[in-house]
Simulated assay, not measured.
Amino acid sequence: MFPSEFLLLAGAHLLALASPGPDFLLLVRSALRHGRRHGIGAAVGIALANGMYIALALGGFSLLQQSPALLTAMKWLASIYLAWLGWLFMQSSLKPAPLPAAGHQQAGAPAGFAAGLGAGFLSAALNPKNGVFYLGLVTLMVGAQTGAGRKLAYGLWMFFAVFAWDAALVLAMSQRRVIALLGRGLPMVERGAGLLLMLAAAVLALARV
């Protein structure tokens, strides 16, 4: 029971991680624009926010389900944050600056590890889909008879899987060859990502009206 349950849970979780979203766009921009340290900070922040939702789901309760008002508030906050993040992307694309050397922070940039951690945590924590996803994943794939020890192991696995995946993306994007390849096209990438984030914010807001 345990191996099959774990494989189903881990497989579904990894497929979800591979799906691009706001966190993916944030990580790519962090690695290219601000360097590896900022990107790793964002990966840690995203993992911590996911860990919060994982703990809620495995604990057998969901604040999002128990409080429709909280869910609505989170969706409004998420739409505002996505719009703000998209605006930052657009603004940054209009002021191209020299990209950092591989593995280093851009000179004079105020964005370090702590800034990346905060941005990553907000990006993942203000996305209500994360809470709904983990609650659904646990409800569908973790049996009622599964003990607390196994649930803890599942939670730790998913937490470290999120961090490992995101950190690997940051390390890949901060390689010298990747920076050289994507450097000239970064403003266009940022404009496209900013537009996508602002559209996502508009759709989320319209769904609330």
Rank of each mutant, 00 (worst) to 15 (best):
F2E: 08
E5C: 08
E5M: 15
E5D: 11
L7W: 04
A10S: 13
H13C: 07
A18D: 01
F24R: 11
L25H: 01
R29W: 02
A31C: 07
A31K: 05
G39F: 07
G41C: 07
A42W: 03
A43T: 06
A47F: 05
A47Q: 09
A49S: 14
Y53K: 00
Y53P: 00
L56F: 13
L58N: 03
F61T: 10
L63V: 12
A73R: 10
W76A: 15
W76P: 02
I80Y: 07
W87G: 11
L88H: 14
S93Y: 12
K95H: 14
P96G: 14
P98H: 00
A109W: 01
A115E: 13
G116R: 08
L117G: 02
N130C: 06
N130Y: 05
G131T: 03
L137T: 11
T139L: 12
L140R: 13
M141C: 11
Q145I: 07
T146L: 01
A148I: 12
A148P: 09
G149V: 14
A153N: 03
A153W: 05
G155T: 01
F159C: 00
D166H: 13
L171R: 08
S174V: 10
R177E: 15
G183Y: 02
G185E: 11
P187L: 08
E190Y: 04
R191I: 07
L199E: 08
A202Q: 13
A202T: 15
A205F: 15
